[in-house]
Amino acid sequence: MENILTIDSVCKNYGDFTALNNVSISVPKGSVFGLLGPNGAGKTSLIRIINQITLPDSGKVILDGEDLNPHHIKNIGYLPEERGLYKSMKVGEQAMYLAQLKGLSHSEAKKRLKYWFEKFEISDWWNKKIQELSKGMAQKVQFIVTVMHNPKLLIFDEPFSGFDPINANLIKDEILQLRDEGATIIFSTHRMESVEELCDHIALINKSNKILDGKLNDIKQQFKTNQFEVGLSCNNCESLLKEINAKFITKSIKSIAFNENIRLLVSLKNDETSNDLIQFLNNKAQITHFTEVIPSANDIFLKAVSNN
């Protein structure tokens, strides 16, 4: 797949502090790319470099086949984690100003803003000042300002913070729609459930280094531990359990479905497969449940960071 953004061996130091150490990341076109990492890992530094707010000390950033340059500003939309707008400026005026700074002409900016304001049903806010709006309302305006110039690359830093569930859902749908229309989205967050839900690729940064990246599914494959969750319906359960424990490493699970007697987490050795386990169980009890345990993004995050 073609990459819209390639970050090649980027380093950034602030005095003695290393914010990014030789970080390389590729973001495929049309993906929702999760940029993950604990606080202070260097995510914001990387995002600022992509936005040309700061320059890398060394390394290269390539956007859509070209070295990053000032013309790319209009191709990037950025919603920073710390958001804000001019408090005493009118919503419309402000949005027009920011749109024009992104390189839209006056008439084009007006047209696009009209579209978005109508889409979000906030047209009557045009002449209100930001300080008259609630935080959630201001966030909507901020979202529009980020996406209105139809950028190829969108960078959202914690986009759902400050939204109620209804509006968070609205924003999520918008993000997915933008992706379907061809935009690539870099998505930086701590909320792993939204990573699970939205991202198809991720990169994990910890202590200035990239420690993991790739397709989310591949990473999950990589992180799975050959563990299976098994539900059994049996007559002589106690002896069966002994038998299983003798052969496999198990862990019992409390939550049992109504039609079963035992639920177990079974860890297989590297040379054993799920078929071996099924075969072993097949004659002894009725299998009511059988799934491979796939690590969640959260598990991967915790594991990768603690291993690092």
């Binding site: 936005n51 040309q52 990037i76 710390e82």
Partner: peptide, 16 residues
Amino acid sequence: EEKTSRIIEVIISSVK
């Protein structure tokens, strides 16, 4: 004002 209202980062992602 730009710093405390945090609009600064939005603006300097558009201009130097």
